[in-house]
Nucleic acid binder design. Structure first.
Lengths: 360, 360
DNA sequence: CTGAAAGCGCTAACAA
DNA sequence: TTGTTAGCGCTTTCAG
């Protein structure tokens, strides 16, 4: 029934099997295979042949027990199909691979309970670090549990890194890499203001999440800095999804809100909003200007191409693993790095009155 | 220096630490914590307290050594940022989570060497299965190495599943879940034909990959079945990316190819092509019709919304893990399931002469 | 109900 | 250079 000539070994071959077949001790097998210790040619040959015949590969768990297995970094995202997360995850994987780490990935679907459960699982795996991306909620309870998780990880010689999330507090042993939501938001709002827009509709995420709150803050400050009033009725909350963008836009139209520009909380929402605008016969940017936030590839696929805030997706991920890998050398216990953002101007904004914003 | 009252244990707490602190044997700790064995109330209390204080979690590797750690499934994709792969990966994760498995993910960036290396790593981890998604090349050497990998996995009590890839051959111990590329391609081509198009430009991937070749086959057959000639000059090869779609479209325009419709090998290519078409002042669908393949969310963000072939992304991933998980019960050694596809008509196709294809 | 001890697969002393 | 042996952290007999 078996196809190999080695015998009906219906389980994974162990070092013992190889030793037996090669007629040497397990220590010799280990040495030959590791290649780091001098061995005789005949022994080498026998072991190599036996190993290949048995398709032997060392058991990573046994190795891990001796604390010399490959290091693993874990990343936890709400959902890999969301472009922002996919790009951050990609950055993590790339950097992890370059650092010789393997990468464990999990998704939570936004379920906070699941986040903790999977996090615990990862800790059991003895991961070098767990990188948490996105979706943090503003709740004291949550913050407390997170802090506790960070401490547990820390006590295990592991580490928590928050990626694209705000810090937990000075007493929590975490590293954080984020980008400046408020500044980016301030910049894009100012861009709209400079183009002559005064009534800017802001479609955004859920009020109990950090990201939308910080982006709103930038929007408000820009308005204030330029001396224009903030109108609460112009900000609509729902969620960072395409469908939320569409629903909110529909609502704004239905309520006949007065605005000349739309600042969508992210590019996905902008896509949803654009669709509704088009169906309503409202032209972008001729009738209303539209901007997003993220600069995912989608932004250039929309028509018109979307003016938005560029976020360093991949770099966020890469930095997260670097902070962990370099930690032993420099030991910056609680580092906090903030990456920059910048506006990328495309075709969805027009100066009120005629001239395109690009020429402002 | 330490924040807990348990003492300066600067490593992960082990069962011994808990036992010592609780004043019981390690066996008792194990039993209490597993909960499956009757224990006395006082013992239970002491152990629970000690464990919590030490933030103890069992070492997953030690457990795995006793072959009772959590099962793990591994998925290997070329690139998580490619929507198709992200959606399949999401399906895998969802199903894996539902089956109580954890999920290891790796990306190869299309590097075949890396695919084998990471695959080996996963085997060392003792994963229950490795799921390979996308990007297979048509090469005997590659096929052979893959077969060897499948055998190695099989010999270890693990399993290889090919997802969205063609089978390896009857002698290779693999399961495969795919969808019918040829049928989908045949259907969408027929759709174009029925709308009166005769000269259909086909922009596609790389000639040494299976997917584009199978899609081309459907295109050819549709042409043949409807009695129209196949013109090789109308098929342009490059890659399944946005930029390849754009480059190819540019080339077709430059070469002044004669066509009334474009069949892009996937939605990403369609996005690239659409952009070039628009810049050239060619209207879709008024001047030329355009279709894609995949039905990723992007398809509805394009303007006009893209008519395309819907692929069961998530289901592909879910089925892949089901095939492995259910394997023990039903033991269908080399199963092969083919999932269906269907056209979704949107706004990018118009009947030659005027009537929209939707009314055909 | 609990403790002592064996052993999962492996590497690293320690001898020979 | 090679074999023997002691664990790594855990679960599970097997005695008590």
């Amino acid at each position: 029934m078996t196809s190999t000539s080695a015998g009906p070994l219906n389980r994974r071959a162990t070092i013992k099997d190889v030793a037996a077949l090669a007629g040497v001790s397990i220590a010799t097998v280990s040495r030959v295979l590791s290649g780091k210790v001098p061995t005789t040619a005949p022994a080498h040959a026998k072991v190599t042949r036996a190993a290949k015949e048995l398709r032997y590969v060392a058991n990573a768990h046994a190795r891990a027990l001796l604390s010399q297995g490959p290091r693993t970094v874990a990343i936890l995202v709400p959902d890999v199909t969301v472009p922002f997360f996919a790009h951050v995850a990609h950055g993590v994987e790339q950097q992890a691979a370059e650092e010789g780490r393997i990468c464990l990935i999990g998704s939570t679907n936004g379920d906070l309970e699941k986040e903790l459960v999977i996090g615990a699982m990862m800790r059991e795996q003895g991961v070098e670090a767990v990188i948490l991306v996105g979706g943090v909620v503003k709740s004291p309870t949550y913050r407390e549990r997170m802090t506790d998780f960070a401490r547990a990880l820390d006590a295990s010689g592991s580490h928590l890194v928050l990626c694209g999330r705000p810090p937990l507090g000075k007493d929590a042993p975490v590293s954080v890499v984020e980008y400046d939501n408020t500044a980016g938001s301030h910049a894009i709002t100012s861009h709209l203001l400079a183009a002559g827009h005064r009534r800017i509709l802001h479609l955004t995420g859920e009020p109990n999440h950090h990201t939308p709150v910080n982006r709103l803050e930038g929007y408000r400050r820009a308005l204030h800095d330029h001396g224009y009033p903030y109108d609460e009725d112009l900000v609509l909350w729902r969620g960072f999804t395409r469908s939320a963008g569409a629903a909110l836009m529909k609502q704004a139209l239905h309520d006949q809100l007065d605005f000349t520009a739309v600042f969508a909380g992210n590019d996905l929402m902008a896509a949803g909003a654009l669709d509704v605008l088009r169906e309503a016969g409202i032209r972008v940017p001729e009738d209303v200007s539209l901007v997003g936030f993220d600069d995912i590839p989608l932004a250039t696929d929309l028509y018109p191409k979307l003016t938005t805030v560029h976020l360093p997706h991949e770099e966020l991920g890469r930095m997260a693993v670097r902070m962990v890998v370099d930690r032993d050398e420099h030991t910056p216990v609680n580092s906090h790095v903030v990456l920059g953002t910048h506006i990328v101007r495309r075709d969805s904004v027009r100066r009120r009155g005629g001239r395109p914003a690009a020429e402002v």
